[in-house]
């Protein structure tokens, strides 16, 4: 059925949301539109409570629209408290952060990330934004998940150009695959049903064998409805430029 098909955009947002668990403290930060939408989707589509905190200081906020900036004060609209930057970092380092969404430019097979530089740090080919919270949050959050809108050997690498953050991602979502940590390594959990396992393996720069992986279950009606309501005009999907290739 066509309505059950994934787009690259819906695949990433929805599969990030599927990492969210009941009653946990879940955080999304700056430069993180897709996890922001995943948290808002999960609030609408799933029949369980979780605490959603974000970099705008919101705690279970009620935004009246979805902002273009994932640090927008709109994400604190309707909050009953302000839990600001120093607070959520301290919460994380003392072990109170259950799930953190953290960005990455390159990811290796141990789930370490580079968000700093392409090339040599001291003679950069491309200076990247920097890791923000990553170096402190990735090793101290109970679980962290990341995402990339590109699935290629230059993004999912054997060897990072620079280790910005270590400690290992619990999960990784690309437009065509979902990875999860097993015995300290990222392994394939499922792949986009319109792609083949061989293609996913070929486009992954760190070694994976695909054992135990299955095609990703289609989006549920509630997941689809929740995402559609968040992106009524399709502007977020368009801006994200996600393709399966």
């Amino acid at each position: 059925m066509p309505e059950e098909r994934w787009s690259g955009f819906s695949y990433i947002v929805t599969n990030l949301a599927r990492f969210i668990r009941p009653n946990e403290v879940t955080f999304s930060g700056v430069n993180s539109n897709l996890p922001m939408m995943a948290c808002l989707l999960a609030k609408d589509a799933y029949d369980f409570y979780f605490t959603y905190i974000n970099v705008a200081g919101g705690v279970d906020p009620h935004p009246t629209k979805v902002p273009i900036s994932s640090s927008d004060p709109m994400l604190a609209a309707g909050t009953q408290s302000i839990f600001s930057n120093e607070d959520f970092y301290d919460l994380c380092t003392r072990g109170g952060m259950d799930l953190c969404f953290l960005g990455a430019a390159q990811i290796d097979g141990e789930g370490q990330t580079n968000v700093s530089v392409i090339g040599d740090w001291h003679a950069p080919k491309v200076r990247l934004p920097g890791g923000g919270g990553g170096a402190v949050m990735l090793p101290t959050a109970r679980r962290s998940c990341t995402w990339r809108t590109e699935h290629s050997p230059r993004v999912l690498v054997e060897q990072l150009d620079f280790v910005t953050a270590s400690g290992g991602m619990h999960g990784l979502v690309t437009p065509i695959a979902v990875f999860v940590k097993r015995d300290g390594r990222l392994v394939l959990q499922s792949w986009h049903p319109e792609k083949t396992l061989d293609e996913v393996i070929a486009r992954t720069g760190f070694p994976i064998d695909g054992k135990g992986a299955t095609p990703t279950p289609p989006p549920t009606a509630r997941e689809q409805a929740a995402l559609a309501a968040l992106d009524l005009a399709g502007a977020f999907e368009e801006a994200a430029h996600v393709t399966l290739d």
């Binding site: 170096a135 949050m137 280790v163 910005t164 400690g167």
Partner: peptide, 13 residues
């Protein structure tokens, strides 16, 4: 003292 940073290349840098 700052929590985290284990395994990051930032402290050495």
């Amino acid at each position: 003292p700052c929590g985290g940073l284990q395994g990051s290349a930032l402290p050495a840098l």
